[in-house]
Design a protein around this nucleic acid. Structure first.
Lengths: 191, 191
DNA sequence: ACCTCTATCTTGACACTGGAAAGATAACAG
DNA sequence: CTGTTATCTTTCCAGTGTCAAGATAGAGGT
């Protein structure tokens, strides 16, 4: 019976998990560090040692978020045809999956100023996500910043509007129909 | 010499202006009601009488924001060719203009949960913006929710990425070139 | 003119927040 | 077993949003 040892053991991970739960529950604007500490069953000042301040915690969470974000795209890609265009559409669907399943985390990545992109870990995680997009656009024949922007904006726009709950008529479709519809829309932006 | 009359005269408008300045300076996540009151030269509890609470103030600001948002689209439309497709592209450019010029306000409209869409004024302002999009898509031949979503997502994606500063290579072009590039991208999403 | 009524604004209080400082506890290296 | 260090708690402070009570002034009726 590990009641409540003074030393948690893996508080860092526990705090990250608690922070994501807090984010999902209350959103970034009502995010409370003290509440995160309570969720992890620890004093309000405990996070400071692992993350410094709130920005540090959110920065670490965002870095994890970018890795999950890439993983969501990878899951779709694994099920798609191997040609470059199909892979790019699949990545777009994964992009949207992530935003729909974790809207608050998605907004932390793309719509928050409480993360520090000077941080090396976050910076490299974000760059990896961007590089993956750029590679795929190149593989599909895109050769300009405009081609990149077109694909990115289409996927991002769908994802952000879904996360905001503004595409309910589309979200209401059966998953298969919904995916087909979204895939067709994404395809319009392809090179 | 109107030194400091006990009654402000037009505190409501002054508070809205101060709130937008506060939003632009600190972003939605560091938005402080007391700081807004200070900007307007008034006690920290003065806003309560006009807006109730912080959510009330942000809701009123968002309603104003949607009207400015539509006005930004109207400005572009007035300079564009009268055919439906050109008007739709122009509206998209106005959409992006607004996001680029007032990124914090743009995020209040599309990425905040601190506004109350149950409020009649905000709700009707937001609906007016949506109706304008739907009308334009219909006029351009769009007849499905997918057509609507495609155009909306493309404009919104470009706007949100610009507001987040993630399309710097495109933002760096001369205005005319930039607009032409964005117009070409938006055109991909048209019916 | 005066006098009430009501809207507007201020003051003071409360619980909550993030962060700093200092102390307590336990793991670990020797 | 002991000194050292990492981890966590306690205590404190300034700042925040909201509520309640009081102060001020404009508006309308007589």
């Amino acid at each position: 019976m590990t009641e409540k040892p003074y030393h948690h053991g893996d508080l860092r991970s526990a705090l990250l998990a608690a922070a994501e739960a807090e984010l999902a529950d209350k959103g970034i604007e009502a995010f409370s560090l003290r509440s995160v500490a309570k969720r992890a069953g620890v004093s309000h000042a405990a996070p400071a040692h692992h993350f410094g301040d709130t920005q540090g915690l959110l920065t670490a969470l965002a870095a994890e978020g970018y890795r999950l974000f890439l993983a969501a795209q990878g899951q779709r890609e694994a099920k798609a045809a191997p040609d470059a265009r199909a892979q790019l559409v699949a990545a777009g669907l994964g992009y949207i999956d992530f935003a729909a399943q974790r809207p608050a985390l998605f907004r932390l990545l793309f719509g928050s100023n409480r993360t520090d992109y000077g941080n090396a870990d976050l910076s490299s995680a974000a760059n990896a996500a961007y590089a993956h997009l750029a590679d795929q656009v190149f593989a599909a024949g895109g050769r300009s910043v405009a081609e990149e922007a077109a694909v990115w904006a289409m996927a991002h726009g769908l994802a952000d509007l879904m996360a905001a709950g503004r595409l309910k008529p589309i979200a209401a479709f059966q998953p298969a129909d919904r995916d087909a519809m979204l895939a067709a829309i994404i395809a319009r932006a392809l090179p």
